[in-house]
């Protein structure tokens, strides 16, 4: 057998083996990546398109997320029984006063509580932003919300800019609104 043929064969062998190994390692890597990220809360990731939804607020007005394109949306999931949610509400209200004119909208999504509870709460705390109630938890499911509070920061392009789980200080809230306000 000529030297050239031999070299070709050796090359083919290396290419073949490398290809098979790479394919298998890619499959395993993908599996591990999936299992590790599936363990985390978010199936939604930063940079994903925020799933569109439509919910009705306490005044009977419906709010569709996609209608706020061009504005930043501060999407806060909460319930009256959740203490950190309750604590951050006044701070959200006061920052809303600052950032509303700069194109940042707050939508507070209550998780399946009664009109009465939510209305009483909103009146008590003097909340100035729209509060919508997710009665069948479909928006909560679509966003895969586990712990409360969770806040999804949606940028003017409708993409998720940041996912915040846990309580936010007023300073945090101001910083986050700064991140998603339109240019």
């Amino acid at each position: 057998m000529s030297m050239e043929k031999k070299r070709n064969k050796k090359q083919n062998r290396t290419i073949m083996r490398t290809a098979i190994l790479l394919l298998l390692i890619a499959a395993i890597g993908y599996t591990i990546y999936n299992s590790v990220t599936a363990g985390e809360v978010e199936v939604l990731k930063v940079g994903d398109q925020a799933p569109d939804f439509t919910l009705t607020d306490l005044n009977g007005e419906s709010h569709k997320l996609s209608e706020y394109e061009g504005q930043g949306v501060f999407l806060n999931f909460w319930g009256t029984w959740c203490e950190p949610c309750v604590r951050e509400m006044p701070a959200m209200a006061s920052q809303y006063d600052v950032y509303r004119e700069q194109g940042v909208q707050i939508l507070a999504v209550n998780i399946a509580q009664s009109n009465f509870e939510v209305e009483t709460f909103a009146r008590q705390y003097g909340l100035n932003f729209p509060i919508v109630i997710d009665r069948d938890k479909s928006v909560m499911t679509a966003y895969n919300i586990r712990p409360l509070p969770t806040t999804m920061l949606v940028n003017p392009e409708g993409k998720i800019e940041r996912i915040v789980t846990g309580e936010m200080t007023e300073q945090d809230i101001a910083g986050f609104m700064e991140e998603i306000k339109p240019e």
Partner: peptide, 25 residues
């Protein structure tokens, strides 16, 4: 506490798959 989803456990299963394929070939 999360044995079957740990990266090393899945990694080992993957190595077993590689071993099966290569040893057979």
């Amino acid at each position: 506490h999360d044995m079957y989803n740990s990266f090393w456990f899945i990694g080992l299963v993957g190595m077993l798959a590689i071993s099966l394929i290569i040893a057979s070939l």
